[in-house]
């Protein structure tokens, strides 16, 4: 499977990335290299339709419904670029 320029732009758009016209070729090559590797998986001979979601064979790992510590507001805000009172400011993305 290979991505064309339009598909590369679409992927960029879904990831909210701005790509310059001249960069398209570079990312197209990188993505196609990855997809070429993935194609090898599709070509592997498998005997079952069952999907494997994890190499670990453990099942049913749960939390009990009990609170076990949360971050303080200071800790939360440490990694936040812009704040407004106790809120985190993020890029505005309303498009209605």
């Amino acid at each position: 499977m290979k991505l064309n320029e339009k598909q590369v732009m679409h992927v960029a758009d879904l990831a909210r990335l701005k790509i310059e016209e001249k960069e398209i070729q570079k990312y197209q090559n990188q993505l196609n290299d990855i997809l070429t590797e993935i194609d090898k998986i599709f070509n592997a001979k498998i005997s079952t339709d069952e999907i494997l979601i994890s190499p670990i064979e453990q099942i049913n790992c749960y939390n009990e419904d009990i609170e076990k510590g949360m971050l303080s507001r200071e800790e939360i805000m440490k990694n936040v670029k812009n704040t407004n009172g106790d809120y985190i400011i993020v890029p505005r993305v309303v498009n209605d």
Binding site: N63, E64, I66, M70, L71, R73, I76
Partner: peptide, 30 residues
């Protein structure tokens, strides 16, 4: 394991998992 509660104070019931910090592992509540 953060509290699931409504509060007028924002960003009070939050853990590293809720914020999707790299390296954190979600675990399902039974």
């Amino acid at each position: 394991s953060s509290l699931n509660a409504f509060d007028n104070e924002p960003n009070k019931y939050v853990s590293v998992i809720d914020l999707g910090y790299p390296g954190t592992l979600p675990k399902l509540n039974k």
